[in-house]
C-alpha cells in the first residue's frame, strides 16, 4: 500500500496548493464575513453621505431648533428629538421597574412548573409585530386612555404652566380627546420593551450565585431583603444593561410611535398629552415623498443622529451585560 501511495511532500499539485479546498473555503466564508462588515459600512456611509447637504446647511444647532416646513426649507429637529427622548423616557420609566419585578418573579419566586410557560408567554409578547401594537393602541387603548386617564388628569391639572405640572396640562394644539400624543406613545413603547427588559433581568438574576442568597438568609433577612440586597444589587450592572437595551429598542421603534404619537412636527408642547413626533416616525412618514434633496438630506441627518444614539447606548449596554454575565472580576461563579 505504502509503495502505491503518492509521496507526502514535494508534490505541488493544484489540490495541495489549495489545501484540498480549505483555502477557497476559508476565503469564501471570510468573504461573507467581510460582507457583514460591509453592510455596516454601507449603512454608516449612506447616512453620513446622505446627510452631508443638511449638515453643511444647518450645523449642529439644527438639533435644538423648532420648526418644520419643507416648502420653505425651514427645518428644526428639536421636536423629533424631544419626542423621541420623552416617549422613550416614559417607556423606560414604566417598563424598567415592571420588567425588573417580572425578572425577579421569574427567577426567584415563580413556582418551577410555571417558569417555562410564563417565560414563553413573555417571549411571545416580544414576537408580535410592532404595527399590531400601534393598531391596538389606536383602536382599543386610546379610547380607554382618553376616557379614564387623559381627561380626568387634564381636567384636574388644567392649564398649569409650572414645570412638573405643565407636563400633565391640557394640550394646546389638539384637543385631549384626539388621544394621540407623546404620553400614549410612551405607554405603548413601554408595553413593547417590557419583554426585553424582563427577559434580560431574568437572565442576569438567574446567574447570581446561590451563596449570595444563602449568606443573606443566614443573617435573618426576609425573602425580599435577600432579593434586594443579595440578588438585585449583585446583578445591578446587568439589569441596567437590560434597561439600556430596552431603551435602545424604544428609541428606534418606528411603527408604534408613528401610529400613536400624533405628528406635531413644528413645535414642542409642554404637555405630554399633546401630540409630538419621534425621529424614526418623522423619517418613515416623510422620506418616501420628500420634496427636495435638502428635505431628504435633513431626514437622513435625523436618521444619522438616531443611529448614533442607539449605537452608543447599545455598546454601553452590551458592555454592562457582558461584564455581569462573567461575574465580578470574571472569577466568582458558584
Amino acid at each position: 500500500m505504502a509503495s502505491q501511495a503518492e509521496p507526502l511532500s514535494g508534490l505541488k499539485t493544484f489540490q495541495r496548493r489549495i489545501e484540498h479546498g480549505d483555502l477557497p473555503f476559508r476565503y469564501l466564508t471570510m468573504f461573507f464575513g467581510l460582507l457583514v462588515i460591509l453592510l455596516v459600512v454601507a449603512i454608516g456611509w449612506v447616512v453620513w453621505d446622505g446627510s452631508a447637504e443638511a449638515r453643511a446647511e444647518f450645523g449642529f444647532g439644527f438639533l435644538f431648533q423648532e420648526g418644520w416646513n419643507p416648502v420653505n426649507n425651514n427645518y428644526g429637529a428639536w421636536p423629533a428629538i424631544y419626542g423621541t427622548l420623552a416617549s422613550s423616557g416614559i417607556a423606560l420609566l414604566i417598563a424598567g421597574p415592571l420588567g425588573v419585578l417580572i425578572g425577579v418573579f421569574l427567577s426567584e419566586l415563580c413556582p418551577f412548573s410555571l417558569r417555562m410557560p410564563l417565560s414563553f408567554l413573555v417571549e411571545l409578547l416580544a414576537a408580535i409585530p410592532s404595527v399590531i401594537y400601534g393598531m391596538w393602541g389606536i383602536f382599543v387603548f386610546i379610547p380607554f386612555f382618553v376616557k379614564y386617564i387623559a381627561i380626568p388628569i387634564t381636567d384636574l391639572v388644567g392649564n398649569a404652566t409650572t414645570f412638573p405640572l405643565s407636563l400633565l396640562s391640557a394640550p394646546q394644539t389638539a384637543p385631549v380627546t384626539s388621544g394621540r400624543g407623546i404620553m400614549i406613545a410612551g405607554i405603548i413603547l413601554a408595553i413593547m420593551i417590557l419583554p426585553t427588559i424582563a427577559a434580560i433581568s431574568r437572565d442576569v438574576l438567574v446567574v447570581v450565585p446561590n451563596h449570595q442568597r444563602e449568606a443573606l438568609l443566614a443573617v435573618g433577612a426576609t425573602r425580599w431583603e435577600m432579593i434586594w440586597k443579595g440578588v438585585i444589587s449583585y446583578a445591578r450592572a446587568g439589569i441596567v444593561g437590560g434597561m439600556m437595551l430596552g431603551l435602545g429598542r424604544a428609541l428606534g421603534e418606528t411603527m408604534a410611535a408613528l401610529m400613536v404619537i400624533g405628528s406635531l412636527k413644528k413645535t414642542v408642547e409642554s404637555s405630554l398629552f399633546a401630540p409630538g413626533i419621534s425621529a424614526a416616525a418623522l423619517v418613515a412618514s416623510e422620506l418616501p415623498n420628500a420634496d427636495s434633496s435638502l428635505h431628504a438630506s435633513t431626514l437622513i441627518l435625523i436618521a444619522l443622529v438616531l443611529f448614533g444614539i442607539t449605537l452608543l447606548l447599545n455598546a454601553a449596554a452590551r458592555l454592562l451585560v457582558w461584564h455581569v454575565s462573567r461575574g465580578p472580576g470574571g472569577n466568582v461563579r458558584a
Partner: peptide, 17 residues
C-alpha cells in the same frame, strides 16, 4: 462587532439605507 451593530440598528435606518 458588526453583527451586534446590525442587530442594534433601528429598522428604520436599514430602511433609509
Amino acid at each position: 462587532f458588526s453583527t451586534d451593530v446590525l442587530s442594534a440598528a433601528p429598522s428604520i435606518i436599514v430602511g433609509v439605507t
